[in-house]
Amino acid sequence: TLFEALYDYEARTEDDLSFHKGEKFQILNSSEGDWWEVRSLTTGETGYIPSPYLA
């Protein structure tokens, strides 16, 4: 399933992933509550992002 970022986000820890509004992601793991592990389709990087920032 693909999701798109609604807002920009700046990583706060080394496990987080910074991203920009409009960036698209593949969800790798959504079992961690509000923090999902994703792969950016723009950069190929993986990390955790806050799920409320996605649509």
Rank of each mutant, 00 (worst) to 15 (best):
E23N: 14
L54T: 06
R12H: 10
L41E: 08
W36V: 05
T13I: 04
L41F: 11
G44D: 03
V38D: 03
T13R: 14
D16W: 11
S30Q: 12
L28P: 01
D8E: 07
D16C: 13
W36R: 00
L17K: 02
D34W: 13
E4Q: 09
T46F: 10
E10A: 07
P52C: 15
D8Y: 03
S18N: 03
W35C: 09
L54Q: 07
N29A: 09
A55Y: 10
E37H: 13
Y48P: 00
A5P: 02
W36T: 02
F19K: 01
V38F: 11
R39L: 14
T42G: 04
E32L: 14
G22P: 01
T46M: 07
L41R: 00
W36S: 00
R12M: 13
T1V: 12
P52Q: 15
D8Q: 03
D15I: 14
I27E: 09
G22K: 00
I27S: 00
K24T: 07
S30C: 12
F3P: 01
F25T: 00
E37G: 00
V38Q: 01
S31P: 08
D15N: 15
S18I: 13
E4K: 03
Q26L: 14
W36D: 01
S18Q: 03
T42H: 09
V38E: 00
A5E: 04
R39M: 13
Y48N: 05
S30T: 13
I27F: 09
W36H: 01
S18C: 04
V38K: 00
A55W: 10
A5Y: 02
W35Q: 05
L28K: 10
E4I: 15
Q26D: 15
P50H: 13
S31R: 09
T46W: 06
A11I: 03
L28F: 02
F3G: 08
H20Q: 10
Q26S: 05
T42V: 08
A11N: 03
I27D: 00
V38G: 03
I49W: 02
D16P: 02
L6D: 07
N29V: 07
E37T: 10
N29Y: 04
S31V: 09
D8H: 04
S51T: 06
S40I: 12
G47P: 00
A55I: 13
R39K: 12
L6F: 11
Y9T: 01
L6P: 06
H20G: 06
S51K: 10
Q26F: 15
D34M: 12
R12S: 10
G22Q: 01
T46Y: 06
F19N: 01
Y53L: 12
P52D: 15
T13H: 14
F19C: 05
P52Y: 15
G47Y: 07
R12P: 11
A5W: 04
G22Y: 11
R12I: 12
I27W: 04
E23L: 01
H20W: 08
Y48R: 14
S31A: 11
S31Q: 09
L17N: 00
